[in-house]
Design a protein around this nucleic acid. Structure first.
Lengths: 355, 355
DNA sequence: TTGTATGCGTTATCAG
DNA sequence: CTGATAACGCATACAA
């Protein structure tokens, strides 16, 4: 692959003429421009963006930290990011961090050395980012945005699911169907991703419904838990729930399976609603009623935010950190129905289903 | 962020001394080295890898083209790639192509301008890459490898599922259970991803079993098809299959659903086996028996191949293009069982299940 | 319209 | 041990 100087020699012009011709500078005569373009194509010439970047200070590179691209939700966020990055002439360097904070820190440094112009941080930490890390991030001179559950201190750009709305949507749907006792199966309040529990419990309280707590969510990872034990402990209560809200479709699938193993019909005996609308949810029997969180939109909005910040910086204006919750929406399918006994039951609550 | 020259000024030394101190050159006195390191840390100095790359010609960047990171299988391949790239000090730039060949070509050019040292091509094309494209790829001076189903002309590095083994595994498992009439639901021979059909039919023929063809696979995309119609057409045959091999778990889920809708028990009346072991397969009822294809390994091997090629080039040796099929393995769960009527049926084949 | 000179942030080759 | 100086591939202000 030739350099711009070698092209110049071949064409019998100076390298600046080549440079200008290639960039379609109007000051170059159509004739030479044409000639140089042809020559460049013939030689498979590709301008060296690294050199350009050194000179201009713009790398057209964005860095994205991601916990695990294998997770459906995260890979769809990446899709969105790639989408807008591509259409704005930016490239994305992806780094996995697997919840390993030193590794994330290392990755960030590497990306900064690569002179990425912005950083997208997706769930790099199980808990909200500590203040010190946030300060450290701000000390680098690149704009960054947190996606999903990473950091929410109000002072940091953040894009993710609107958990409050999600809680409302789930509870409202079940409420409308007639359910009055619901349970939530997922990470508890205060824990990693506990925001969802909080939101659902708030929605429950707002309707003066009991907030049955699931006490044995001892998940190793966010998906690893004993569905049958969880279900048993829920149904053992004095007022067993007629509907279960699951924090994720995979959890919903497990709960449905556990229910069917104890010969409970879904949605006949028990309604189950999931979250995040995973790829297979619509093909199951029953197809899972779920809440779409639009991960690709989350990625798109986040990436756009970075791009805006870049422009704002160029205009010498201050980029305002923004919190951007993305509104989820209900996807009604087959796993929720009115409770078997209606409400209120004439003779008090029905006996717990046989088990 | 200061440059190396500014640091030099602050430290009262020349910029070459700073450069050397930062790279721990033994010729620098421990005292100054220490001092410069401290100063660099204080100023949040990060060496500019772009400038380094311009000089050395090594960008430590690899480019990866991917059809759709939202697809489980592809995102897991990406995981593997990221894994080995990271541990070898390489970064990955990801570009989505969505089967859009002009876009893929464009992305490749962009990546070449970015001076990636190698290219990983994942399913960028529905059919094997045309010879002309392959030649064009070779004309660029970077090593590349095709992943999954992209190109298999024997002259190009390729890593992907060993389809022949996959076919054997699926058919053997069902054969061992006693099935003698099996069908395949998936892209037909000759079509995009038709290799799987070919392999399964070969395995069937090897055992002198009938090769019932599914004639109405009119999938728009690879997952979009009418499962109920497909199932109906299969069961309508004179010798309806007692087992169905699905080209992907999502298809298996749909077939299972369709079967249950016509009150066929799975695996009692019909055995179903999937491929690719999707995240949710183990949580369904029945949990899907499937074939694990180890996508992360595919990514790892492919990335390692590129890295090897890079080293080989450095050693002035020729990088040998290699075909590396990855051996899949059977994951036995609950969706396959012996056929209801055993084999051979005493009074000929049983009547087709009621429908 | 084109050419010359300079610089971007590095590393590397010489001297000293 | 350290310091000039050149070079990498490119863009651009200035001169012609």
């Amino acid at each position: 692959m030739p350099t711009i100087r070698q092209l110049a020699e071949l064409a019998g012009v100076s390298h600046s003429t080549v440079s200008r011709a290639l960039r379609d500078d109007p000051r170059i005569s159509p004739a030479t421009r044409q000639r140089i373009h042809a020559l460049a194509a013939e030689c498979h010439f590709r301008p060296n963006r690294l050199a350009q970047s050194v000179l201009t200070g713009k790398s057209s590179l964005l860095g994205m930290l991601i916990t695990d691209v294998g997770i459906d939700f995260e890979s769809h966020i990446l899709r969105g990011v790639l989408d807008v990055a591509y259409s704005h002439g930016y490239r994305i360097i992806v780094e996995e961090t697997a919840f390993d904070m030193p590794r994330a820190r290392q990755a960030i440094h590497t990306l900064l050395e690569q002179r990425v112009e912005g950083l997208l941080l997706l769930s790099i930490h199980r808990t909200p980012l500590p203040r010190s890390t946030l300060l450290e991030m701000r000390s680098h001179d690149v704009p960054f945005v947190c996606l999903d559950f990473t950091a929410m201190d109000g002072n940091t750009a953040w894009v993710g699911t609107d958990e409050a709305q999600l809680g409302e949507i789930a509870v409202q749907h079940l409420f409308d169907l007639g359910h009055r006792v619901m349970a939530y199966v997922g990470p508890p309040m205060g824990a990693y991703r506990g925001e969802r529990a909080s939101a659902i419990y708030a929605a429950l309280r707002r309707r003066h419904l009991p907030t049955s707590t699931l006490r044995d969510w001892e998940a190793e990872s966010a998906w690893d838990f004993a569905a049958d034990r969880a279900l048993a402990s829920l149904l053992d209560q004095r007022e067993p729930p007629t509907a279960i809200i699951c924090w994720e479709d995979r959890v919903a699938a497990r709960i449905i399976r556990a229910a069917r193993e104890r010969e409970l019909a879904v949605p006949g005996d028990l309604s189950v609603i999931g979250c995040s609308n995973c790829a297979i949810a619509e093909f199951l029997l029953p197809a899972i009623t779920t809440i779409e969180q639009y991960p690709a939109d989350i990625g798109r909005v986040a990436c756009r935010h970075i791009l805006n910040a870049l422009n704002a910086a160029a205009n010498a204006r201050i980029a305002v950190p923004a919190m951007t919750p993305i509104t989820p929406s209900l996807v009604i399918r087959e796993s929720c129905a009115p409770p078997r006994w209606g409400y209120p039951p004439s003779g008090g609550f029905p006996p717990a289903p046989a088990r």
